[in-house]
Design a binder for these strands. Structure first.
Lengths: 222, 222
DNA sequence: CCACAGACGTAGCAAGCGCTTGGTAAATGG
DNA sequence: CCATTTACCAAGCGCTTGCTACGTCTGTGG
């Protein structure tokens, strides 16, 4: 079925897409960016499933029902697609984190809020998180993604500050390294994208509550 | 420096290698497998650093100071190299796990032992674990690595059984899902490979003790 | 001293990669 | 009705990929 091009020019079977009447010509720019966002989402799923490098521009184009070259009408490069995916995720989660911090509650509630926010992004941003997990090592080496490292440092500061304040207030044990503890929490949350499936036994918030119990009080019976 | 081949045949500068006298001809088969293991280790480092797919056979050969074609004297394919890496890791860790279980101690001590074993592999098998983390999604899709999934299931059973017994014995809280708890523990341990560096502030066993404290009793001050 | 086998180099193939160029059908605005 | 813009197709370029075929060098056992 991937046999290229029947003889007549305009006969490509479009394997994907909603099959509706093809929109051509100048749509409103709002609709144009809708198309763009749709392509980004398709790409994100593929990146998450097979990895960024293993996903070819032809894969993405196939999924969208167009040819690989046509992708370059919408995007500069393959990198710019994954950039859009990750940037969207980062701006949203950092805003959510800031909102929790801004509530100004005690460190325990703040940490709980951050954990709930993190688990809350698991479903809407599953693909982005997966890409971040699997291809981080590769992507961070590229200049264009230097901003990701900067954002991650800001996030780390939020968590570590909250943990430290909690220790000073006598809410958390003082024999724990805040940085190490933050990493433990962060990794445990994000890594859940590997086995978390939206329709499963537990939803994201159920996971969050389960995790909060273990994190705050441990698995021991007291 | 990668300019190919000066005019005279035998003048390749060998960029890597210990520079000792080149061993040729029939060595003992023990030494032959030594060479093989050395190549596997080089490849493992590259796979861990750049990812399996992003690492080319030419990268590996460069690191070894030979040409890419010469690699195929030692290995069938690029896949067979990563196979050797992962298989070695899995057989060792499963043996270690079995040994802990066989001690027959109480569930709390057994879990602690498993955690210590896991952290203990962080240093000697850093590359293998990194590959498993980053390229798992890609590798598990290939028939040749189906055995990895089977091994993982066996490991899961060990942990979950121990956790359940602990709950029945009144050692662990009963309001936790054993499977979910196992995954939390597993992920937190392995994911540490991303930021763990052998010469750092804390060694692997220090990490293990830090983690055991949090896992058993939580971060709350009791 | 010589046949042998292991350990490489040399050269290159077929396939696939990201991306570019130039053209074309369709919708829109004036 | 026509100029313009959008969204695509068709074709392919330059390069890299994993891998192969075959020749060459070298230490070793007989």
């Amino acid at each position: 079925m991937t046999t290229t091009s029947a003889k007549s020019g305009r006969s490509r079977t479009r394997t994907a897409g909603e099959g509706g009447p093809r929109r051509r010509g100048r749509g409103s720019s709002a609709l144009a960016s809708e198309r763009r966002e749709h392509l980004v989402k398709l790409a994100a799923e593929l990146f998450a499933e097979k990895g960024f490098q293993a996903t070819t521009v032809r894969n993405i184009a196939d999924e969208a029902g167009i040819l690989s070259g046509s992708l370059y009408h919408h995007f500069d490069s393959k990198e710019s697609i994954v950039d859009e995916i990750l940037a969207g995720f980062f701006t949203e989660i950092m805003a959510s984190y800031q909102a929790v911090i801004a509530e100004g509650r005690n460190p325990r509630d703040t940490i709980a809020g951050l954990v709930r926010v993190a688990f809350g992004t698991l479903e809407p941003h599953r693909a982005a998180i997966t890409v971040m997990q699997n291809d981080w090592n590769y992507l961070k080496g590229m200049d264009r993604f230097a901003y990701l490292i900067k954002s991650e440092d800001e996030v780390e500061k939020m968590w570590v500050d909250t943990l430290q304040t909690g220790q000073e207030d006598g809410l958390f044990r003082s024999d724990l390294d805040p940085k190490l503890t933050y990493r433990m929490i962060r990794d445990t949350v994000w890594v859940a994208v590997r086995w978390f499936r939206p329709g499963g036994r537990l939803d994201a918030q159920g996971l969050a509550e389960h995790y909060l119990k273990v994190m705050f009080d441990g698995i021991n019976l007291h």
